[in-house]
Amino acid sequence: MAVLELRDVHLTYRTAQGPVPAVRGVDLSVDGGEVLGLAGESGCGKSSLVASVLRLQPRSATVTGQVLVGGENVQTMSWRRLRAVRWGEAAVVFQGALHSLNPIQRIGRQLVEPILLHDSAATPRTAADKVAGLLAQVGLPETHADSYPHQLSGGQKQRVMIALALTCDPQVLIADEPTTALDVMVQAQVLELLVGIARQRGMGVVIISHDLSVLATTCHRVAVMYAGRVVELGPAQELFEHARHPYVRALARAFPTIGEARSRYAPAGLPGDPPFPDRLPSGCPFHPRCADAVDECSSVDVRLRPAGPGRVAACVHVGAGVG
C-alpha cells in the first residue's frame, strides 16, 4: 500500500517577475518498505517537492494536485491535523545536517522534543530512553545526547538527523541529499544505515540525490526529474544501466564507473545548462541540450509513456509498446 502518493503535483512560486513553476505535474507513489530514489540536477524541483510533502513550502508558493501521506491530503488538511502528520507520519532528514540542528540546544533535548510532542503517553524518562536507543541504532554513543551540535563531526550530525527523523516512527521518511556534505566513506555508511532501518521498520523512503550511481545501489526504484517533471522512472539498476531518456543516459554517464580508469579521465558531460523554470523551451524542455533531438521535439511536450515493464520515460523515441 502506498504510504506516500503524489498526484499531479504542481508547485509555483510567485515572484516579482511573475510565476515560476518549479514542479509541473509529478505523479509518484512509495509503498511501505520501499526505497525510492529521486535524482536530478540542482533546480529541477526536487527540494520544492520535498517541501510540499510536509507543507513546508514558503508562503510565496502555490501547490496544486494531491500530496497524500497515508491517504490524507497534506496540502488541504487542517493545521491541527498537519501538525500531527508532521514528524508523526512523515519525517525528513534535511539537506545540510550541519545547520539543521539548533546550535545552542543539546542533541538529547532536540531529539526528545518531537517524542513528547507527538506521543501523549511519553514521559521525559521514556522519551530519553527512546532517544538513547535511537542513538545506539545510528551508531552513536548514548552520551552524545549531552553534546551540542558543534561538538559532533559532519557524519555524526547526519546520524543525529537520521535518529531525529526516526523519533516518532513515521510511515514516510524523506532524505533530502542526506550524504552531500559527507566524504565518500561516510556517505555509503549513512545510506546503508538509513535504508537498513527503514526496511526493518517497513517505512516508505524517498532518497533525494543528484548522484545517480548512489541511488542505483541503494534504491528499489529511481525517478529522475528534469525541469519540474519526472522524465524517467524505473527499477534502479535497470534505469542506471539502460536509461531510455537521453537526459538520464547523460546523467548516468556523468559519474565515472569505479574500477574503469577510462571513465575517470573522460566523464561524459552534458552541454548547456538546465533551463530556468520561468523560461522553459517549447516542446520537450530537454531538446536544446539533447543529442538525439528531432524536429518533433521542439513542438511536442511529451509526457511519460510506458517504456518496458515497470518503466516509464518521457521521450518521443520511446514508443508505446517498445520494450
Binding site: 501538525r83 500531527a84 545540510g96 539543521s100 540542528l101 522534543e113 518531537p114 507527538h118
Partner: peptide
Amino acid sequence: SQDYLTTARAKGLM
C-alpha cells in the same frame, strides 16, 4: 532563514 527552524516546524511544533 536558518535550517534548524525548518526542522523545528517540520517536527510539528506550533
